[in-house]
């Protein structure tokens, strides 16, 4: 039994994040910068059907809730608000690990329409991890007040992901948002997001590393985008390897047996 053999791996992984998967609801992640009205979107979508707990092993609050659309029930997970997913803080690591390993069926990124550039930075990092991303352009009323005009169609075209303008405080656009979630989950639309093109020196290095990873890590490719993993390795991010170790290689059935390996492999996962 190895990584490749774990067909039920996804559900097991989701349980690692304290997600109740007994109902087999599609899992929708809600990401976004701080102060973008993310929790208003969360409340708007789930209403009172929500509860809070902790992210496993961490004293960071986790909120999850349910919503129904077209007779289907969805579970919405509110990720911590972060500017980036580059794992500089516990919050960033939680958000990254969830998108990377729990593999939500769709990820909504809430962005502040009055400050698109900073918010796109996060959007572009999320689309590196997962295809099924929806950009929720919130605070459209504020943007209008500030005479900021956004070409939604152009944005959609450039990012190659669905873009839904909302005013979450007034409930505007939330139905459209649910509809888009529904469409993605039920494969009515298939998303292939635009990915950041890196400078040649980085792309070259990544290229080389991907080859290495492909031959050396046969199993992991199914779970993680190797291009993305190479980028993390290149920038010296050790937290990703720690997360892989924590999540993939922690299964009761072989935990005890592999323990020796962890101690002797000589890698410092810090």
């Amino acid at each position: 039994m190895g990584l490749t053999a774990r067909s039920s791996g996804l559900n097991l992984l989701r349980e690692n994040f304290n997600i109740d998967y007994s109902k087999k609801n599609p899992i929708i992640a809600l990401a976004g910068n701080p102060n973008t009205g993310k929790s208003t979107v969360f409340n708007g979508l789930t209403g009172l059907r929500q509860h809070t707990g902790n992210w496993p092993g961490k004293t960071v609050t986790q909120a999850q809730g349910n919503f129904r659309y077209q007779g289907q029930e969805f579970t919405l997970i509110d990720l911590p608000g972060t500017y980036s997913l580059l794992a500089n803080s516990t919050e960033e690591r939680i958000a990254r690990d969830f998108i990377c390993f729990a593999r939500p069926d769709a990820t909504i990124v809430v962005a502040d329409a009055t400050n698109l550039e900073r918010n796109l930075n996060l959007v572009l990092q999320v689309t590196e991890l997962t295809d099924n991303v929806i950009l929720c352009l919130n605070l459209m009323d504020e943007a209008e007040r500030k005479n900021i005009k956004i070409d939604v169609a152009g944005l959609k075209n450039d990012l190659q992901i669905p873009v839904v303008p909302t005013v979450a405080r007034d409930g505007k656009g939330l139905k459209e948002l649910k509809n888009t979630v529904y469409d993605i989950v039920n494969k009515n639309i298939v998303v292939h997001p635009y990915r950041v093109k890196y400078s040649p020196e980085i792309e070259n290095a990544v290229e080389e590393l991907v080859q290495e990873l492909r031959t050396m890590l046969t199993g992991i490719e199914k779970y993680i985008n190797l291009h993305w993993l190479s980028l993390r390795l290149l920038e010296g991010d050790k937290t990703i390897m720690r997360s892989i170790k924590d999540l993939f290689l922690k299964d009761d059935s072989f935990e005890t047996k592999t323990e020796g390996v962890v101690q002797t492999d000589g890698v410092n996962y810090i």
Partner: peptide, 11 residues
């Protein structure tokens, strides 16, 4: 180190 990463991430 970490401080550099954080500042970069802030843009």
């Amino acid at each position: 180190g970490k401080k550099r990463r954080r500042l970069l991430d802030l843009g």
